[in-house]
Design a protein around this nucleic acid. Structure first.
Length: 261
DNA sequence: ATGGCTAACCCGGTTAGA
């Protein structure tokens, strides 16, 4: 089974690129982030015509996640409230960042982790609070389902080798100690980075800033991940970053990452 | 160098991304 994750930065703007990519890369599962569209306005038909089932959770202008699957998913849920106390997480679920579904006994959890704006800002505090809830959400999920694949745009580079230029990173969003600590605590539940099973080199990224010619200079970050529970991690066959879509005209600033289980 | 680039929104300037 191939599971891809791709922050498309607007599904309506990227519709043709996503369709083209799926024709060349007919993955079993495609997890999308930053669809930036309400469910009513989501361009479902072209993807359904390609043979995909769509599970979507979006909102106007911001955020939004979706899972495309060749086979229908079971037990699709959106938001933290599917697992956690709705009264506690209600305000967090207003931002559409979490969708999950099951295929062949594997629980696939697709995430768009908050960006955090800048270290110490209100949005940064929100990001850390969100990650704390994510830990509880995944802990309870693992109690129900041992086989999980948690993927998406984490907006965190866990190690310096995941950043083109790590100097000064302690005050940089996506690399600060508190963010890394929050993610490490989540991984300590029993999850491991599929990409690093196969590739230990630096210089391999999934996101490049639109500005300052970051992509041609390969000044990027690796912030899009697949985290697998132990039995899936042991079985993983490959995990690759496909830079091709980032070379196109009007690309997303992220590019797809694909794990094969 | 707090720049630079892109997208949505409501209509050219703001908010957000990372």
């Amino acid at each position: 089974m191939k599971i891809a994750t791709w922050n498309v930065n607007s599904i309506r703007t990227r519709q043709e690129q996503v369709l083209g990519w799926l024709q060349t890369n007919p993955v079993d599962i495609l997890c999308l982030q930053e669809t930036k569209v309400t469910d009513q306005q989501f361009p479902r038909v072209p993807f359904e015509d390609l043979g995909y089932h769509l599970s979507i959770s979006g909102q106007k202008a911001y955020n939004g996640v979706a899972i495309f699957s060749r086979q229908p998913l079971e037990d699709v849920t959106v938001g933290f409230a599917a697992i956690l106390d709705p009264n506690t997480v209600q305000t967090f679920d207003e931002q559409k960042r979490v969708i999950a579904g099951t295929l062949d006994g594997i629980r696939i959890i697709n995430l768009y982790v908050p960006n955090g704006a800048s270290v110490g800002s209100e949005k940064y505090i929100y990001k850390l609070s969100w990650l704390k809830l994510l830990k509880e959400y995944l802990q309870k999920t693992l109690e129900q389902t041992p086989n999980i694949c948690v993927c998406g745009d984490f907006n965190i580079a866990l190690e310096d080798r995941d950043i083109h230029d790590p100097k000064g990173r302690e005050n940089h969003i996506m690399a600060s100690e508190a963010e890394r600590q929050a993610l490490t605590e989540i991984l300590d539940l029993g999850l491991a980075d599929a990409f690093r099973k196969f590739n230990t080199e630096s210089g391999q990224f999934s996101w490049w800033d639109y500005r300052a010619a970051s992509f041609p200079r390969n000044k990027g970050w690796r912030i899009d991940h697949h985290y697998l529970s132990s039995s899936l991690y042991d079985k993983a066959k490959s995990c690759i970053i496909d830079k091709t879509p980032r070379t196109l005209e009007k690309p997303s600033d992220h590019t797809p990452v694909i794990v094969e289980l």
